[in-house]
C-alpha cells in the first residue's frame, strides 16, 4: 500500500486531532488583523443601524442558546457594541431560556465597559416562550401591552429607555440573531406590514437560504455566522483588536484549507489506486 492509498484509510480520530491542532494555532496566537473584505450584506446591516434615529429603539431578538453560542454570540456582541457606541437605545428579547442569561451577561459586560447604564441605554426583556408570531404581531401594535415588564419584573413604562415606546412607529430596526428559520415570522408579521428594517444574523448553516430574502429586499442586511461578526467588528472600528471573532475567522480559514487539502489528497489516492488496480489487477481499498 503506497502513501496515497494509505491516505484513504486514515483513522477518523487522527483527522479530528489534526483539525483540532490546525484550529488551535490561530486561537493561541489570537491575530488582531480582522478581514479587510466586508460583504455587501454586512455593510448594509451596519448602515441600516447607523441610520436609526435617536428617538427610536432597536429590538435585538435572540433565538440562540448555548448550542450555537460560538456563532451567534460574536454577532450579538458586535451589534450591542455598535448600538451602545452610537447611543442608540435597544431592547433584547430572548426566545431561549439559557440564551436569555447569556445575552444579559454579554450586554452587561459591554455596557459597563463603555460606561452605559441598564434602563437608560438598554433593557433586557427576559425570556419569552412564544408563540413568536403572536408576540411579533402584537408588539407592532402595542409594545407596552405585549411586554409590560423587563426581566426583573420592572414595568417598562417606568424605565427611561422604554417609557415612550408605543408601537412600530418607535421601533427603528429589528435584529434577528438565530440558528433557526424564525426570520420568516418577523418578515410576515412585522417587516412587511409595518415597513421596519430587518437585519438577519443567522448561523452559517442558515445563511445560504437567506439570500432570496436579501435579493427581494425583505432583509436589509445580514451577518453570516462568525465571519459576518468579524466583518462587522471591522466596520465598528475594532479591526486591530484581538477578538474571538477575528481569531475564529482565521481558524475557520485554516480549517477550510485543511479540509480541502484532505479532500484533494483522498480523491487523488482513490484515483491512483483505481488506476494501479486496472493496470496490475490488484486489490481495491474499501
Amino acid at each position: 500500500m503506497n502513501v496515497l492509498e494509505k491516505l484513504q484509510t486514515i483513522d477518523r480520530r487522527v483527522l479530528y486531532l489534526l483539525i483540532a491542532a490546525v484550529i488551535a494555532v490561530p486561537l493561541l496566537q489570537r491575530p488582531s488583523r480582522h478581514p479587510r473584505i466586508v460583504f455587501a450584506e454586512v455593510r448594509n446591516a451596519y448602515e441600516t443601524l447607523q441610520k436609526v434615529p435617536k428617538n427610536k429603539i432597536v429590538i435585538i431578538s435572540c433565538v440562540w442558546g448555548p448550542g450555537t453560542r460560538a456563532e451567534n454570540e460574536p454577532q450579538t456582541r458586535a451589534i450591542i457594541r455598535h448600538l451602545l457606541m452610537q447611543g442608540t437605545r435597544f431592547v433584547i428579547l430572548s426566545w431561549d431560556q439559557l440564551g436569555s442569561q447569556l445575552t444579559y451577561e454579554d450586554a452587561s459586560e459591554i455596557s459597563s465597559e463603555l460606561g452605559k447604564r441598564y434602563g437608560t441605554d438598554w433593557v433586557h426583556l427576559g425570556y419569552n416562550p412564544g408563540p413568536m408570531y403572536a408576540i411579533i404581531r402584537g408588539l407592532g401594535k402595542s409594545f407596552q401591552e405585549v411586554f409590560k415588564v423587563d426581566r426583573f419584573g420592572k414595568k417598562l413604562r417606568s424605565i427611561p429607555a422604554t417609557r415612550n415606546v408605543r408601537d412600530y412607529r418607535d421601533i427603528g430596526a429589528v435584529v434577528e440573531i438565530t440558528p433557526s428559520g424564525t426570520v420568516a415570522s418577523w418578515i410576515a408579521y412585522f417587516n412587511q406590514p409595518f415597513d421596519v428594517p430587518l437585519i438577519f444574523c443567522p448561523t452559517a448553516v442558515m445563511s445560504a437560504e437567506a439570500y432570496p430574502y436579501l435579493d427581494s429586499g425583505q432583509l436589509d442586511g445580514m451577518l453570516n455566522g462568525v465571519i459576518g461578526a468579524a466583518q462587522y467588528e471591522t466596520l465598528i472600528g475594532m479591526e486591530n483588536e484581538r477578538t474571538y471573532a477575528a481569531a475564529a475567522a482565521w481558524a475557520l480559514s485554516c480549517a477550510h484549507i485543511f479540509i480541502i487539502v484532505l479532500i484533494v489528497l483522498g480523491n487523488l489516492g482513490y484515483a491512483l489506486s483505481k488506476r494501479s488496480t486496472r493496470r496490475g489487477g490488484g486489490k481495491t481499498i474499501g
Binding site: I23, E73, A204, V205, S207, A251, A255
Partner: peptide, 14 residues
C-alpha cells in the same frame, strides 16, 4: 455553509 457552521461550534469550544 453547514461545514463552516459546525466547524465554528468546535472553534468556540476550543
Amino acid at each position: 455553509a453547514t461545514v463552516m457552521g459546525r466547524m465554528t461550534l468546535f472553534i468556540g469550544r476550543l
